[in-house]
Design a protein around this nucleic acid. Structure first.
Length: 559
RNA sequence: UGGGCCGUCGACAAGCGGUAAGUCACAUGGUUUUGGUCCAUGCAUUCAGGGGUUCGAAUCCUCUCGGCCCAACCA
């Protein structure tokens, strides 16, 4: 406890440490994640979830999941189910504390009545346009509503009738009576309730008035006994109002603390942009593996652990920032390097014939499943006269630093033999059809008894034993780092990467992979980490590339 | 421009008056039957800029510059 983990140090933990020292909240720490069920979760939400959850855990506190379902026209049960599923997968645990703002509608109503009785709220009958106009601007004060001085009894009567459905949408609103000349726009008699004759996904048509965020949110936190209400920076201006309502009501007041949202470069994170991509069919759906949605990342092959690690590395602060996508990639490689079984697969096959190898002979070669994990053991891989190698592993006229196969050159076929390329067979167009090679029987296992060295080790697969598969390769969705900072007149839609998805349908896999279940992850040696897509069937396996391996050769070539 | 918040390496980010952590990225070398992993090394005499307080300032004061948020009956 004295040895505080410095990597986790952040200003929120400092505040909590101090609160604990002062004995606030009787030493309780209780956080929450309050999504509105109006869209799908993305990695930015993962930060909010994990910041709240990890703090609750580390301080021996509690963490609630609460749906902030106060606006029925935008919300749907479909989203609540998807969100629950995503958070469970991510690994945050709310135990038995799943709540809905709509659970509190009755209490909120009673609190509103209390505020009216205290003379701190009134029914306003101005139109939306009048309210907007009378609010003033950031530099000029607003003016009081002509309905501001209605009597308490009239307010009570009107508010009750609003609730009873006697008025049309927009006829009246309930407002807090604060200060129309406050420099903080949010304190200029903020709205508390609006009339909406819209059925709610949980309360049906029981209610036709719905509480507005500022009124609802603090009460939700208060009612649940939240101690630290952690949210994003744009709510800073709301904090005085959050405090005002709870102080006026004389109820438990959690402390709202704001931190910066997560931004990632070369992608989009806003609900609006994500929706646009989905609706215009630029991606296959909310779970398209190119999307930073949790369902997309899951389908892409990310693990919850990788996302947790990533969020820890990103940290928590108040400065706006855009995190490098490379950090996310590093986070998943770090996990998969330790866990993923290795397998030899050829994405872009080039046939090789070993001319001095007996026809019909098949050898079972021992291959290590994971050099990072001795317990993973070995497997048998069939070796035969006809093999596939990666097309990029051969060059007829290799440049200086190219170590792989070339005419007359000897390389190692991993775990098998030293192989020398003797002849290149081409079609009439000059397209390379196959390579004629020889093997050195003495080099079995990939070692030469005479101490001869080769500069490259290639992966390979037996033609006869390989299974065909489709492999989907993904690249960044957006070609520019920051879509919030574009050239005049351009939108993010002008920077969609046309090559963000490449489908390879003639890939050759080790046979056992045909039986792998969707979600199964492995490393294709020398190529990257891959996982089985839900579209996959034993007849037609489909793999997604989660991320490439670090590739210093590719980097050299790009220079 | 009223109010609120922010500015530490290419990207994140610690630091809380005692002389710039860490991670990613990048670079170099070593190991290697994955051009992977791993290991080693390098990468901010300086904290947006100026002035001030102090024996001592990224940390305190002050001014300037730059960025973000707030005028939905959204959250």
């Amino acid at each position: 406890m004295e040895d505080k983990d410095r990597s986790k140090s952040n200003f929120i933990r400092d505040i909590i440490d101090n609160d604990l020292l002062e004995g606030k909240n009787n030493g309780r720490v209780h956080t929450r994640f309050p999504p509105e069920p109006n869209g799908h979760l993305h990695i930015g939400h993962a930060k909010a979830i994990l910041v709240n959850y990890s703090i609750a855990q580390d301080y021996n506190g509690k963490f609630n999941l609460r749906f902030d379902d106060t606006n029925p026209i935008k919300e749907d049960e479909e989203y609540v189910n998807a969100i629950i599923n995503d958070i469970k997968w991510l690994g945050a645990n709310w135990e038995d504390r799943l709540f809905y703002a709509s659970d509190y509608f009755e209490e909120m109503y009673d609190f509103a009545v209390q505020l009216i009785k205290a003379g701190r709220a009134f029914v306003d009958s101005q139109s939306a346009e009048e309210i907007r106009k009378n609010r003033g601007t950031v530099r000029s004060p607003g003016v009081n509503s002509p309905f501001r001085e209605r009597s308490i009894n009239e307010n009570l009567d009107l508010f009750g009738r609003m609730k009873n459905g006697e008025f049309e949408d927009g006829a009246h609103v309930l407002r807090a009576k604060i200060d129309m000349s406050s420099p903080n726009m949010l304190m200029r008699d903020p709205l508390m309730y609006r009339i909406r004759h819209t059925p709610h996904h949980r309360t049906g048509d029981k209610w036709c008035i719905y509480p507005i965020y500022d009124w609802a949110h603090g009460l939700e936190d208060s009612l649940e006994g939240i101690t630290h209400s952690l949210c994003s920076l744009e709510f800073q201006a709301h904090r005085p109002l959050y405090d005002w309502f709870l102080l006026e009501l004389g109820v438990h007041k959690p402390q709202q603390i704001e931190f910066a949202r997560l931004n990632l470069n070369y992608t989009v994170m806003s609900k609006r942009k994500l929706l646009e991509l989905v609706e215009q069919n630029l991606v296959s759906g909310w779970d398209d593996p190119r999307l930073p949605t949790l369902s997309g990342l899951r389908r892409r092959g990310f693990t919850p652990e990788a996302i947790q690690n990533f969020i820890n590395k990103v940290g928590v602060a108040k400065a706006h920032s855009i995190v490098d996508y490379a950090l996310l990639e590093h986070s998943i490689r770090e996990v998969l390097n330790k866990q993923a079984p290795r397998v030899m697969s050829v994405l872009n096959p080039l046939k090789i014939v070993i001319t001095n190898y007996p026809i019909e002979q098949v050898e079972e070669i021992d291959a290590v499943n994971n050099p990072e994990d001795p317990d993973a053991g070995t497997r048998k891989v069939p070796f035969s006269k006809e093999l596939y190698i990666e097309r990029e592993d051969f060059m007829e006229d290799p440049p200086k630093k190219f170590f792989r196969l070339a005419p007359g050159r000897e390389v190692r076929f991993r775990y098998a033999y030293f192989i020398t390329c003797n002849e290149v067979i081409k079609d009439e167009n000059g397209e390379i059809l196959e390579l004629q090679c020889t093997y050195d029987p003495a080099s079995k296992g990939g070692k030469s008894p005479d101490g001869r060295k080769v500069k490259a080790t290639l992966h390979w697969i037996s033609v006869e034993h390989a299974v065909d598969a489709e492999v989907r390769l993904y690249d960044r969705l957006i070609t520019v780092p920051d879509t919030n900072n574009l050239e005049e007149g351009k939108t993010f839609m002008d920077y969609i990467n046309p090559d963000s998805l490449k489908i390879l349908d003639n890939c050759k896999l080790e046979a056992q992979l045909a039986k792998a279940d969707p979600g199964y992850r492995c490393q294709f040696e020398r190529l990257g980490y891959f996982c089985v897509d839900p579209d996959s069937t034993p007849q037609k396996p489909v793999f997604n590339r989660t991320v490439t391996l670090r590739d210093t050769w590719a980097r050299m070539q790009n220079k």
